[in-house]
């Protein structure tokens, strides 16, 4: 495989990791906790996309044979799936995070409650649509060719799409965070929830906003991965979820550009693992993570860790 091909493969996988880590980072920045249900929301996004393009459910599960009476083009299905995932993320916030916040409980508990929510979601998917894998046919892209040549390499259109959408979403998110009232409110809550509250910012609404956005990003990423490599079953988000965690720390907890940079680095590093060693590919991101944590615990673009006195 030549260099361009490796780069393209690495960047497109890295874009997914980046989108994933962005979702974690948004929630982490306002609440200081990791949402372990994020992988399940990603998975749901993929299934929503599959249903919205008119895909039929297989023979297993309670929804066997179900098919929507309409079929949307991929461009319509993807944002709608993102919205569906955002609603689920809001629901997760409502049941797994807000009660803890209201009781001022140990934030550590949110690791457990969000994982509980994730377990429920994943098994609900399995109950409803079965454990089989579903593929989103690349024909949904309409007239676009399956691949195109670039500098002597063949690039799958899906890969370019993944990268393009990730960059677009990152740019929009950055503009929104810096330029809009809500975006700045979100940053204020991330900085210091109590001061933000005193300044008249509704921190509960900002938390909800962060969850909604993170769910949307996860849902879109899920739909794109579903298109790129098919939906391998209800558990397929978990592997990405763990990689996203590594990426999150690599880039710096709470840093938006860090999440994307971390994603691209991990994606590229994995793409450069030789085929003979492919079994060890999954350890690359965690090895990186380990090194970064030990050498620079705040991550590549993170802010200095607070030191309590």
């Amino acid at each position: 495989m030549d260099l361009i091909q490796i780069l393209v493969n690495g960047l497109s996988v890295g874009a997914v990791y980046g989108l994933f880590a962005l979702g974690y980072t948004l929630v982490f920045s306002v609440l200081g906790v990791i949402n372990f249900a994020h992988g399940a929301v990603f998975t749901l996004g993929a299934y929503f996309t599959y249903l919205l393009i008119g895909g039929a459910i297989g023979a297993n599960g309670l929804m066997a044979g179900f098919q929507l009476p309409f079929a949307l083009p991929f461009w319509g299905a993807l944002p709608l799936a993102g919205l569906g995932a955002a609603l689920v993320a809001l629901l997760v916030e409502r049941v797994a995070f807000r009660p803890l916040r209201r009781r001022r409980a140990d934030p550590l508990l949110a690791l457990i409650t969000s994982l509980g929510a994730g377990v429920i979601l994943v098994n609900l998917i399995q109950l409803l649509v079965g454990a089989e894998s579903y593929a989103i046919p690349t024909s949904v892209l309409g007239g676009l060719p399956a691949s195109f040549p670039l500098l002597g390499a063949r690039v799958r259109t899906v890969q370019a799409l993944l990268l393009g959408v990730a960059v677009l979403l990152l740019a929009l998110l950055s503009l929104w965070l810096e330029g809009s009232r809500n975006g700045r409110g979100l940053q204020a809550v991330a900085e210091d929830p109590e001061t933000a509250q005193l300044l008249g910012i509704d921190s509960t609404a900002m938390v909800r906003l962060a969850f909604g956005l993170s769910g949307f990003l996860a849902g879109v990423a899920g739909g794109l991965v579903g298109l790129s490599v098919s939906i391998a079953g209800p558990y397929f988000g978990i592997g990405y979820g763990l990689k996203g965690l590594a990426v999150l720390v690599l880039g710096g907890l709470g840093s938006v550009p860090g999440a994307v940079l971390g994603g691209l680095i991990v994606g590229l590093a994995e793409a450069f693992v030789p085929a003979d060693w492919s079994g060890y590919k999954d350890a690359v991101s965690y090895g990186f993570l380990f090194l970064v944590l030990l050498l620079r615990p705040r991550g590549l673009l993170g802010r200095p860790l607070p030191t309590k006195v």
Partner: peptide, 22 residues
């Protein structure tokens, strides 16, 4: 590893588990 605190330590140990698993 134990110089890390809170969630950082938790994530580092998750990474250790994954490295051992691989």
């Amino acid at each position: 590893v134990l110089q890390l605190r809170g969630i950082y330590l938790a994530i580092a140990t998750i990474a250790l588990v994954e490295i051992l698993r691989v």
